[in-house]
Amino acid sequence: MIIAEHLKKTYIVKQGKGLFREKQEIQAVRDISLQIEKGKIVGLLGINGAGKTTTIKMLTTLLSPTEGSYFLDDIDGVKYPVEIKKRINMIAGGERMIYWRLTAYENLWYYGQIYNVSNNVLKERIDTLLKLVGLENKKDVPVETFSKGMKQRLQIARGLINDPQYLFLDEPTIGLDAVVSKELRSHIKHLAKEQNKGILITSHYMGEIEELCDYIYIMNDGVLIKKGTVKELTTETFNRKNYVLRLDKHSKEITECICDKLKVVDATVEVKDENDAIYINSRENISMELSRACMEAGLYIREMYEKEPHLEDAIIRLSREVHHEAVY
Protein backbone atom coordinates (compact mmCIF):
# COMPACT_ATOMS: atom_id res chain seq x y z
CA MET A 1 0.00 0.00 0.00
CA ILE A 2 1.12 3.53 -0.73
CA ILE A 3 0.67 5.96 2.11
CA ALA A 4 1.48 9.60 1.51
CA GLU A 5 1.00 12.12 4.24
CA HIS A 6 0.95 15.90 4.11
CA LEU A 7 2.91 16.14 0.91
CA LYS A 8 3.87 19.63 -0.05
CA LYS A 9 5.71 21.01 -3.04
CA THR A 10 6.90 24.54 -3.42
CA TYR A 11 8.61 25.52 -6.64
CA ILE A 12 11.02 28.38 -6.71
CA VAL A 13 10.85 30.17 -10.02
CA LYS A 14 12.92 33.08 -11.18
CA GLN A 15 10.98 35.92 -12.62
CA GLY A 16 12.02 38.42 -15.22
CA LYS A 17 15.16 38.61 -17.28
CA GLY A 18 18.76 39.46 -16.73
CA LEU A 19 21.05 39.01 -13.76
CA PHE A 20 18.87 40.19 -10.92
CA ARG A 21 15.92 37.95 -11.29
CA GLU A 22 13.37 37.89 -8.55
CA LYS A 23 12.64 34.60 -6.91
CA GLN A 24 9.05 33.63 -6.49
CA GLU A 25 7.56 30.72 -4.63
CA ILE A 26 4.80 28.70 -6.22
CA GLN A 27 2.94 26.40 -3.89
CA ALA A 28 1.85 23.78 -6.39
CA VAL A 29 0.85 21.29 -3.72
CA ARG A 30 0.12 22.56 -0.24
CA ASP A 31 -1.15 19.53 1.65
CA ILE A 32 -2.03 16.18 0.15
CA SER A 33 -2.51 12.92 2.01
CA LEU A 34 -3.62 9.85 0.13
CA GLN A 35 -3.50 6.08 0.05
CA ILE A 36 -3.37 3.61 -2.80
CA GLU A 37 -4.14 0.00 -2.06
CA LYS A 38 -3.03 -2.87 -4.25
CA GLY A 39 -5.79 -4.01 -6.56
CA LYS A 40 -7.59 -0.68 -6.30
CA ILE A 41 -7.97 2.19 -8.74
CA VAL A 42 -7.77 5.61 -7.18
CA GLY A 43 -8.74 8.77 -9.03
CA LEU A 44 -7.13 12.13 -8.51
CA LEU A 45 -9.29 14.94 -9.80
CA GLY A 46 -9.14 18.66 -10.05
CA ILE A 47 -9.33 21.52 -12.49
CA ASN A 48 -6.29 22.61 -14.54
CA GLY A 49 -3.40 23.62 -12.34
CA ALA A 50 -4.84 21.99 -9.24
CA GLY A 51 -1.55 20.16 -8.67
CA LYS A 52 -2.35 16.66 -9.91
CA THR A 53 0.73 16.20 -12.05
CA THR A 54 2.93 17.63 -9.32
CA THR A 55 1.47 15.11 -6.87
CA ILE A 56 2.09 12.24 -9.27
CA LYS A 57 5.67 13.36 -9.79
CA MET A 58 6.26 13.33 -6.07
CA LEU A 59 4.78 9.84 -5.82
CA THR A 60 6.97 8.65 -8.70
CA THR A 61 10.04 10.28 -7.07
CA LEU A 62 10.64 12.55 -10.04
CA LEU A 63 10.16 15.40 -7.60
CA SER A 64 11.22 15.49 -4.02
CA PRO A 65 8.49 16.78 -1.70
CA THR A 66 9.26 19.98 0.13
CA GLU A 67 7.58 18.44 3.15
CA GLY A 68 5.67 15.32 4.03
CA SER A 69 6.20 11.58 4.19
CA TYR A 70 5.77 8.88 1.59
CA PHE A 71 5.83 5.13 2.10
CA LEU A 72 5.38 2.39 -0.47
CA ASP A 73 4.97 -1.04 1.09
CA ASP A 74 6.88 0.30 4.09
CA ILE A 75 9.76 1.61 1.98
CA ASP A 76 10.53 5.22 2.73
CA GLY A 77 10.19 6.92 -0.64
CA VAL A 78 11.80 10.14 0.48
CA LYS A 79 14.95 8.34 1.62
CA TYR A 80 15.14 5.52 -0.92
CA PRO A 81 13.75 6.77 -4.23
CA VAL A 82 15.60 4.10 -6.23
CA GLU A 83 13.77 1.31 -4.40
CA ILE A 84 10.50 3.01 -5.27
CA LYS A 85 11.48 3.40 -8.92
CA LYS A 86 11.94 -0.35 -9.27
CA ARG A 87 8.37 -0.99 -8.20
CA ILE A 88 6.43 1.65 -10.09
CA ASN A 89 5.91 3.12 -13.50
CA MET A 90 4.14 6.11 -14.93
CA ILE A 91 2.19 6.62 -18.12
CA ALA A 92 1.35 10.09 -19.30
CA GLY A 93 -0.88 10.83 -22.21
CA GLY A 94 0.46 12.30 -25.40
CA GLU A 95 2.79 11.31 -28.18
CA ARG A 96 6.04 12.25 -26.51
CA MET A 97 8.23 10.06 -24.38
CA ILE A 98 9.16 7.48 -26.97
CA TYR A 99 11.96 7.36 -29.52
CA TRP A 100 10.35 8.07 -32.84
CA ARG A 101 13.14 6.69 -34.94
CA LEU A 102 13.17 3.39 -33.14
CA THR A 103 10.67 0.65 -33.83
CA ALA A 104 8.04 -0.38 -31.30
CA TYR A 105 10.12 -3.38 -30.38
CA GLU A 106 13.34 -1.39 -30.03
CA ASN A 107 11.63 1.14 -27.78
CA LEU A 108 10.34 -1.51 -25.43
CA TRP A 109 13.64 -3.35 -25.54
CA TYR A 110 15.51 -0.22 -24.48
CA TYR A 111 13.23 0.45 -21.53
CA GLY A 112 13.39 -3.21 -20.56
CA GLN A 113 17.16 -2.97 -20.43
CA ILE A 114 17.27 0.10 -18.22
CA TYR A 115 14.83 -1.61 -15.85
CA ASN A 116 17.17 -4.60 -15.87
CA VAL A 117 14.52 -7.05 -16.98
CA SER A 118 16.28 -10.33 -17.67
CA ASN A 119 16.64 -11.00 -21.37
CA ASN A 120 14.61 -14.18 -21.71
CA VAL A 121 11.70 -12.68 -19.75
CA LEU A 122 11.93 -9.46 -21.73
CA LYS A 123 11.45 -11.01 -25.15
CA GLU A 124 8.28 -12.73 -24.11
CA ARG A 125 7.00 -9.73 -22.21
CA ILE A 126 7.46 -7.42 -25.16
CA ASP A 127 5.45 -9.78 -27.35
CA THR A 128 2.69 -10.05 -24.76
CA LEU A 129 2.54 -6.30 -24.26
CA LEU A 130 2.50 -5.53 -27.97
CA LYS A 131 -0.35 -7.97 -28.41
CA LEU A 132 -2.14 -6.43 -25.47
CA VAL A 133 -2.07 -2.94 -26.99
CA GLY A 134 -2.79 -4.29 -30.46
CA LEU A 135 0.54 -3.40 -32.02
CA GLU A 136 1.86 -6.89 -32.62
CA ASN A 137 2.03 -6.43 -36.37
CA LYS A 138 3.70 -3.04 -36.05
CA LYS A 139 6.52 -4.50 -34.03
CA ASP A 140 9.29 -3.65 -36.46
CA VAL A 141 7.92 -0.41 -37.82
CA PRO A 142 9.54 2.90 -36.77
CA VAL A 143 7.33 4.77 -34.34
CA GLU A 144 7.37 7.97 -36.41
CA THR A 145 4.92 6.39 -38.83
CA PHE A 146 2.45 5.58 -36.04
CA SER A 147 -0.81 7.43 -35.50
CA LYS A 148 -1.37 9.35 -32.30
CA GLY A 149 -3.37 6.54 -30.75
CA MET A 150 -0.79 3.95 -31.69
CA LYS A 151 1.99 5.97 -30.10
CA GLN A 152 -0.04 6.27 -26.98
CA ARG A 153 -0.75 2.57 -26.87
CA LEU A 154 2.96 1.94 -27.16
CA GLN A 155 3.36 4.31 -24.24
CA ILE A 156 1.09 2.06 -22.22
CA ALA A 157 3.10 -1.02 -23.12
CA ARG A 158 6.19 0.88 -22.05
CA GLY A 159 4.67 1.65 -18.67
CA LEU A 160 4.18 -2.05 -18.03
CA ILE A 161 7.63 -3.18 -19.16
CA ASN A 162 8.96 -3.60 -15.61
CA ASP A 163 5.74 -5.26 -14.41
CA PRO A 164 5.24 -2.52 -11.81
CA GLN A 165 3.27 -3.08 -8.63
CA TYR A 166 1.94 0.44 -8.72
CA LEU A 167 1.05 2.40 -11.79
CA PHE A 168 0.52 6.12 -12.17
CA LEU A 169 -1.58 7.31 -15.07
CA ASP A 170 -1.60 11.01 -15.86
CA GLU A 171 -4.41 11.66 -18.31
CA PRO A 172 -3.73 8.41 -20.17
CA THR A 173 -6.62 8.68 -22.62
CA ILE A 174 -6.11 12.29 -23.67
CA GLY A 175 -6.64 12.56 -27.40
CA LEU A 176 -7.71 8.97 -27.93
CA ASP A 177 -10.85 7.98 -29.81
CA ALA A 178 -13.79 6.41 -28.02
CA VAL A 179 -13.04 2.85 -29.06
CA VAL A 180 -9.41 2.91 -28.05
CA SER A 181 -10.04 4.62 -24.74
CA LYS A 182 -12.75 2.12 -23.95
CA GLU A 183 -10.31 -0.72 -24.58
CA LEU A 184 -7.76 1.04 -22.46
CA ARG A 185 -10.22 1.40 -19.61
CA SER A 186 -11.06 -2.26 -19.62
CA HIS A 187 -7.38 -2.97 -19.60
CA ILE A 188 -6.74 -0.69 -16.64
CA LYS A 189 -9.50 -2.50 -14.79
CA HIS A 190 -7.91 -5.79 -15.65
CA LEU A 191 -4.55 -4.63 -14.28
CA ALA A 192 -6.08 -3.74 -10.97
CA LYS A 193 -8.54 -6.58 -10.54
CA GLU A 194 -6.65 -9.49 -12.11
CA GLN A 195 -3.05 -8.49 -11.60
CA ASN A 196 -3.55 -6.77 -8.26
CA LYS A 197 -1.74 -3.59 -9.18
CA GLY A 198 -2.39 -0.37 -7.32
CA ILE A 199 -3.33 2.37 -9.77
CA LEU A 200 -3.64 6.12 -9.50
CA ILE A 201 -5.26 7.88 -12.42
CA THR A 202 -5.94 11.49 -13.28
CA SER A 203 -8.30 12.45 -16.03
CA HIS A 204 -10.55 15.23 -17.16
CA TYR A 205 -13.03 12.73 -18.57
CA MET A 206 -15.47 12.16 -15.76
CA GLY A 207 -17.14 9.18 -17.35
CA GLU A 208 -13.81 7.44 -17.23
CA ILE A 209 -13.30 8.21 -13.55
CA GLU A 210 -16.83 7.20 -12.63
CA GLU A 211 -16.42 3.93 -14.45
CA LEU A 212 -13.00 3.02 -13.13
CA CYS A 213 -12.34 4.39 -9.71
CA ASP A 214 -12.89 2.67 -6.41
CA TYR A 215 -12.01 5.80 -4.57
CA ILE A 216 -11.59 9.44 -5.50
CA TYR A 217 -9.61 12.37 -4.23
CA ILE A 218 -10.54 15.82 -5.39
CA MET A 219 -7.97 18.55 -5.13
CA ASN A 220 -8.04 22.22 -5.80
CA ASP A 221 -5.27 24.76 -5.57
CA GLY A 222 -2.89 22.23 -4.02
CA VAL A 223 -5.12 20.89 -1.25
CA LEU A 224 -7.58 18.04 -0.95
CA ILE A 225 -11.12 19.31 -0.79
CA LYS A 226 -13.06 16.03 -0.82
CA LYS A 227 -12.55 12.32 -0.90
CA GLY A 228 -14.79 9.30 -1.13
CA THR A 229 -16.35 6.85 -3.55
CA VAL A 230 -18.10 8.14 -6.66
CA LYS A 231 -21.48 7.64 -5.03
CA GLU A 232 -20.55 9.34 -1.79
CA LEU A 233 -19.14 12.31 -3.59
CA THR A 234 -22.01 12.95 -5.94
CA THR A 235 -24.79 12.50 -3.43
CA GLU A 236 -23.02 14.40 -0.71
CA THR A 237 -22.32 17.32 -2.96
CA PHE A 238 -25.75 17.11 -4.50
CA ASN A 239 -28.15 16.63 -1.67
CA ARG A 240 -30.39 18.80 -3.77
CA LYS A 241 -32.59 17.52 -6.56
CA ASN A 242 -32.49 18.62 -10.16
CA TYR A 243 -35.52 18.42 -12.43
CA VAL A 244 -35.91 19.13 -16.08
CA LEU A 245 -39.39 20.03 -17.28
CA ARG A 246 -40.72 20.51 -20.81
CA LEU A 247 -44.26 21.79 -21.34
CA ASP A 248 -46.45 22.15 -24.40
CA LYS A 249 -46.19 25.93 -24.08
CA HIS A 250 -43.22 27.97 -23.09
CA SER A 251 -42.97 31.52 -21.79
CA LYS A 252 -41.44 33.62 -19.06
CA GLU A 253 -44.82 34.04 -17.36
CA ILE A 254 -45.35 30.30 -17.12
CA THR A 255 -41.94 29.83 -15.52
CA GLU A 256 -42.64 32.54 -12.97
CA CYS A 257 -46.05 31.11 -12.22
CA ILE A 258 -44.60 27.66 -11.53
CA CYS A 259 -41.87 29.18 -9.42
CA ASP A 260 -44.39 30.97 -7.22
CA LYS A 261 -46.36 27.78 -6.67
CA LEU A 262 -43.26 25.79 -5.70
CA LYS A 263 -41.99 28.46 -3.31
CA VAL A 264 -44.86 27.53 -1.03
CA VAL A 265 -43.44 24.00 -0.64
CA ASP A 266 -39.73 24.74 -0.65
CA ALA A 267 -38.52 28.28 -0.04
CA THR A 268 -35.04 27.55 -1.40
CA VAL A 269 -36.23 26.40 -4.79
CA GLU A 270 -34.46 27.80 -7.86
CA VAL A 271 -36.19 27.84 -11.21
CA LYS A 272 -34.23 28.56 -14.37
CA ASP A 273 -35.55 28.99 -17.85
CA GLU A 274 -33.29 27.81 -20.63
CA ASN A 275 -34.01 27.09 -24.29
CA ASP A 276 -37.33 25.31 -24.29
CA ALA A 277 -36.98 23.69 -20.88
CA ILE A 278 -37.36 24.70 -17.25
CA TYR A 279 -34.67 23.65 -14.78
CA ILE A 280 -35.67 23.28 -11.17
CA ASN A 281 -33.31 22.84 -8.26
CA SER A 282 -34.78 22.08 -4.86
CA ARG A 283 -33.95 20.67 -1.48
CA GLU A 284 -37.02 18.41 -1.25
CA ASN A 285 -38.51 15.88 -3.56
CA ILE A 286 -41.15 18.04 -5.24
CA SER A 287 -42.18 16.00 -8.27
CA MET A 288 -45.79 15.74 -6.97
CA GLU A 289 -46.09 19.47 -6.41
CA LEU A 290 -44.55 20.13 -9.76
CA SER A 291 -47.06 18.09 -11.72
CA ARG A 292 -49.93 19.50 -9.68
CA ALA A 293 -48.78 23.06 -10.39
CA CYS A 294 -48.74 22.33 -14.10
CA MET A 295 -52.19 20.81 -14.07
CA GLU A 296 -53.66 23.71 -12.15
CA ALA A 297 -52.24 26.10 -14.71
CA GLY A 298 -53.79 24.01 -17.47
CA LEU A 299 -50.47 22.98 -18.99
CA TYR A 300 -49.57 19.61 -20.46
CA ILE A 301 -46.29 18.03 -19.46
CA ARG A 302 -44.37 16.81 -22.48
CA GLU A 303 -41.39 15.63 -20.52
CA MET A 304 -40.27 15.64 -16.91
CA TYR A 305 -37.32 13.88 -15.33
CA GLU A 306 -34.92 14.06 -12.48
CA LYS A 307 -31.33 14.64 -13.51
CA GLU A 308 -28.64 12.32 -12.11
CA PRO A 309 -25.90 14.37 -10.50
CA HIS A 310 -22.59 14.06 -12.29
CA LEU A 311 -19.13 14.00 -10.85
CA GLU A 312 -18.00 16.73 -13.18
CA ASP A 313 -20.62 19.09 -11.80
CA ALA A 314 -19.56 18.08 -8.31
CA ILE A 315 -15.94 19.02 -8.98
CA ILE A 316 -16.70 22.32 -10.63
CA ARG A 317 -19.12 23.17 -7.86
CA LEU A 318 -16.71 22.17 -5.10
CA SER A 319 -13.84 24.07 -6.66
CA ARG A 320 -16.04 27.13 -7.00
CA GLU A 321 -17.19 26.92 -3.39
CA VAL A 322 -13.64 26.58 -2.13
CA HIS A 323 -12.63 29.48 -4.30
CA HIS A 324 -15.41 31.63 -2.83
CA GLU A 325 -14.38 30.74 0.68
CA ALA A 326 -10.86 31.71 -0.11
CA VAL A 327 -11.95 35.04 -1.49
CA TYR A 328 -14.11 36.00 1.42
Partner: peptide, 18 residues
Amino acid sequence: ISGTLELIYLSPVNRAAV
Protein backbone atom coordinates in the same frame (compact mmCIF):
# COMPACT_ATOMS: atom_id res chain seq x y z
CA ILE B 1 12.39 17.87 -25.48
CA SER B 2 10.94 14.48 -26.31
CA GLY B 3 10.35 13.70 -22.64
CA THR B 4 12.42 10.54 -22.72
CA LEU B 5 15.00 12.02 -20.38
CA GLU B 6 12.32 12.14 -17.73
CA LEU B 7 11.60 8.47 -18.28
CA ILE B 8 15.26 7.62 -17.88
CA TYR B 9 15.15 9.42 -14.55
CA LEU B 10 11.94 7.62 -13.68
CA SER B 11 13.77 4.32 -13.99
CA PRO B 12 16.25 2.99 -11.43
CA VAL B 13 18.99 2.79 -14.06
CA ASN B 14 22.52 3.75 -13.09
CA ARG B 15 22.88 7.33 -14.35
CA ALA B 16 26.58 6.97 -15.03
CA ALA B 17 25.89 4.00 -17.29
CA VAL B 18 23.53 6.09 -19.39
